[in-house]
């Protein structure tokens, strides 16, 4: 392989690596949104996931426990969102923002209580690559797709599974119906609030996992605000992907690409101030949203609470 090919393969490998938090967080957002529950606490849940994921891995010396703990806490956040909005019928955006604050505060609080203030932050080992036997031997493709950590495989399989679940099963049809017209779904015997609780909890778990991925793959430690807006970008991504698992996956590829590109150009120099390259993902998000609105159709009942005792919707 020539120099150029090596560069391309490296780039593609990094894109696959950077893809994971976007896929997990935005598929989690999509799941809730498809039942009408609009979670805006991604950034906070991911921060808390990063914090407890790191701490779990650090204290128990096991990345697996860290990931499990991050999913548990993320699930609790999802449960809280579902309880306040579905059971108590409170405004989804307000509760989402409140949970975002909790996430931001708790992430640093947990870290300070467990680790304290140190000059040298403790490190955890990063996730190992798990080459898939056979497939990883394929030239080029094997390096890019089949020699990654297992969360990369999980993100891909999850997207495939969600596509199957939403569009090929009757359960998926019921789930989507709750987000489009909960009254109709309710009259057909679908339990609207149970559906919302379910997607909120699973969505929260995925966001927690997305957060825990960051210290386990990128830095090896937790730092304040380390999610750096990926949670908010995940919301944009979900819109961009039209609330469909397969398009969200493609959108994540695009955003991961922009992120890696900004990083590469920064290292390469090229005379552009690095501050401007850092803004690339955010500016790309805004531009994409400007064009996405033409084709995107969000779930009709997105962001609203369903009250079965009311005669009208909304």
């Amino acid at each position: 392989m020539g120099q150029f090919e090596v560069q391309i393969v490296n780039f593609a490998r990094l894109v696959m690596l950077a893809l994971v938090p976007y896929v997990l967080a935005s598929q989690g957002t999509m799941l809730g949104g498809r039942t009408g529950l609009f979670n805006v606490a991604q950034e906070g849940i991911m921060l808390v996931g990063a914090s407890v994921g790191f701490l779990g891995a650090y204290l128990y010396d096991s990345l697996f426990y860290g990931l499990l703990l991050a999913m548990l806490v993320g699930g609790l956040f999802g449960l809280a969102l579902a309880y306040f909005t579905t059971t108590l019928k409170m405004n989804q955006f307000v509760i989402g923002l409140a949970l975002f604050f909790f996430g931001v505060g708790l992430s640093t609080l947990f870290y300070k209580f467990v680790v304290g203030v140190t000059l040298q932050p403790p490190l955890i080992p990063t996730l190992q690559n798990v080459p898939i036997p056979g497939l990883s031997q394929i030239p080029v493709l094997g390096d890019i797709f089949f020699t990654q950590n297992w969360l990369v495989y999980f993100a891909v399989l999850l997207s495939l599974f969600l596509y199957y679940l939403l569009y090929q099963t009757s359960f998926g049809l019921e789930l989507r119906a709750v987000g489009e017209n909960p009254k109709a779904a309710d009259s057909l015997g679908v339990n609207v609030s149970r559906m919302r609780y379910g997607t909120a909890i699973v969505g929260g778990m995925l966001m927690g996992l997305a957060g825990a991925y960051l210290p386990m793959v990128y830095t090896g430690t937790f730092t304040e605000g380390m999610v750096q807006g990926r949670g908010w970008i995940a919301i944009a991504l979900t819109f961009f992907g039209g609330w469909s698992p397969h398009l969200i996956f493609l959108g994540s590829l695009f955003f991961a690409g922009v992120e890696v590109l900004a990083l590469r150009v920064q290292i390469g120099g090229f005379g552009i101030p690095y501050q401007f390259l850092l803004t690339l993902p955010y500016i790309a998000t805004i531009f994409v949203m400007m064009f996405a609105f033409r084709w995107v159709r969000a779930p009709a009942f997105l962001g609203q609470n369903y009250d079965r005792e009311k005669r009208t919707l909304a």
Partner: peptide
């Protein structure tokens, strides 16, 4: 475009 999203993204810029 949802203003929650764009106002937050402008912070990062």
């Amino acid at each position: 475009i949802n203003e929650i999203l764009t106002t937050v993204l402008m912070n990062f810029i």
